[in-house]
Design a binder for these strands. Structure first.
Lengths: 208, 208
DNA sequence: TGCGCCATAGGTGACATCACCCATGCACGC
DNA sequence: GCGTGCATGGGTGATGTCACCTATGGCGCA
């Protein structure tokens, strides 16, 4: 059986984060059965070090992994991996555990052992969702790159500008000449590659 | 026992949506025990008709209520009730049901019967969260009210403006004179009560 | 029939934005 | 020391924004 749609030009990668050796055989069987490319990591740290940021991935995470608590783990993963969807699972899952997993930002949550078909469908949905948001994620990364090229002063000017302040107001608040504020604004527009302030505000507010 | 913090100047209201007559006695016991003000509705329609939009409320919803399916119900409630938090419950809840409830936007999810202490804590958290977001919700409602006063043409102009187009560009795209587009823009700024286009964009994009 | 609301279009004038130009001073690294 | 980057400040001119004003034509409602 293969739940990975053939239409995809490359198979999605499943990042398998699990510390429990008893589950390793099961995942190998699942991998063979599901047809996804599966990369296993024994810890959150190993994943953060070794994984490459791909565009068509999802994370399947043992929610009882040691180290930081599950909240922190999920948050770190989400921040570092550009909102890659996380599918949680845990042995002997209860309704409460599932709800808390979801509240911490999981895309889906399962009790172990998982029916291969159910996990496959869950992964397919997660990858599809990530795919749909890929354009947004790429744009966000692009904006982030441009933002990092700004100087501190330019960033300050941008902060005020994105709150609706005019150049004159910004100059007053920063205690500098309107001309200097204008100068920073000009460099800002240039570095952010937009034609005017309204486009800058739209770009920044849409990609927060 | 009373899990409602005394610091609140008014007790929060719990909107109890349930169609199952067997649970009515239980909720009356819960109500007495928890100290919240509880208003019961036998259907989603009854809630939408009779409930008043309060600022310190939450919804406790039997996820197996008949009528529209649960997804639609949750979405309707969220839209109409200004993102009031929804706590779901269901008899014989499974991990899957809980996960789906959370995916549909529930704030929390429980298996019935619920421990009074657990439900009380859940309600307290939901109300606290809603309280924290109240300022944002009020501002969003205010923006919404102003938006509804716009004419179709003004709305069109605003759509383009919030995408970063200049007045000249908008005029060209709408096939009207730049002067007419300017006229719509002016009425737009007036109705939305902002000083300039950048403030309008900030207002609209921050309150979507 | 007249009133109000809307879309259309134009005029004028004050001000802001934006793209060029210029310069000085300061810190940091080669 | 000397270039490089940054913050500071200014000048000029084209263009855009914004607040006033005017007017015409359509459409619905009392």
């Amino acid at each position: 059986m293969n739940v990975c749609p053939r239409a995809w030009d490359a198979p999605p990668t499943v990042h398998w984060l699990n510390h429990d050796p008893e589950l390793e055989d099961a995942i190998n069987l699942l991998a063979a059965e599901l047809g996804f490319q599966i990369v296993a990591y024994p810890s959150v740290e190993a994943f953060l070090e070794r994984s490459t940021a791909d565009t068509r991935d999802c994370i399947v995470l043992n929610w009882q992994m040691p180290g930081a608590n599950e909240v922190a783990a999920a948050e770190v993963l989400r921040a570092r991996r550009d909102r890659m969807p996380i599918i949680g699972f845990v042995r002997g899952a209860t309704v409460r555990m599932a709800v808390e997993g979801m509240q911490q930002g999981a895309f889906d949550f399962h009790a172990w052992p998982i029916e291969p078909l159910v996990l496959g469908a869950s992964i397919a949905r997660a990858v599809a969702k990530f795919e749909a948001e890929r354009g947004l994620a790429l744009q966000r990364a692009c904006v982030e790159r441009r933002l990092s090229s700004l100087t501190d002063r330019e960033r300050e000017v941008m902060e005020f500008a994105t709150q609706g302040f005019s150049t004159r107001d910004i100059a007053e608040r920063l205690g500098i000449s309107p001309k200097t504020a204008e100068h920073h604004r000009a460099r800002l527009l240039n570095k952010m590659q937009v034609a005017n302030m309204t486009q800058l505000i739209v770009l920044v507010l849409r990609n927060r």
